[in-house]
Design a protein around this nucleic acid. Sequence first.
DNA 1: CGGCCCTAATTT
DNA 2: AAATTAGGGCCG
Length: 254
Amino acid sequence: MKKWLLIGGMVVVAALTVGFLVIKGPEASAALPQDFELPEYGEDEDIVRHLGYTASYNHGTLVPDWVAWELTREEAKARKEGQFSFSRDPDVRFPKASREDYSRSGWDKGHMAPRADMRWDLKALEESYYFTNICPQDHTMNSGAWRKIEEWCRSQALLHERLYIVCGPVFTNHRHGTIGEGCVQVPDAFFKAVAMENGGELHTVGFIVDNSPQTFSPRHYAVTVDSIETVISRNLFPLADEAAEASIDWNVWK
DNA sequence: CGGCCCTAATTT
DNA sequence: AAATTAGGGCCG
């Protein structure tokens, strides 16, 4: 059933793409399908769509399984400002993480889709503070290695036209347990997968950072998207061909 | 020194 | 539960 849905979805995407090409002409061939950034997901997942990101929120862990978004050059340049605080997602009705769970836990309320990637719209900025988009993160890692990866992504978005990014928690041995009365599970590590089109070819790069004090530069944590997919058992860019996820081309990722 | 990642205490 | 206020540390 799931497989047929997937195939059906791909047929629809292909049909839309063909239609798009007919209308727009060959110069549009560089544009990847809308929602290209969304990973593979099952019917049992709770998908929440917001202006700046789409996420799959997990009832059991009380963190997202993944958060996906597109980052364009213009979005990366934007500097809108507003004051927002962490809050519950009105689009998620079942029990979810709260501020109390994180308060004095020793763990950061770490953004998956970064606040700084959402400064092109005040609504997107506000929604980035929903717990749908938050995981418990080591503070040194969040403000160190993870932040450097986020800033590296923004610099890549400025160099190229747009990036497709999906990131989320990695659970292996659950060595950090849970926090708060809600029992929010603390991830063992985090993954981030990035895709970008350059010269008609798709390029990808990934990162895995342990949820512990990490401060090295992005390349230290670089891995293929393929290897992330093995670790989390999920296809991250279903519409990308396998070869694009099997290697990292540091000539295009500058 | 500004930008970005935050925290905690207090008030509503 | 959320808004307000005040503050810290790291890095390019």
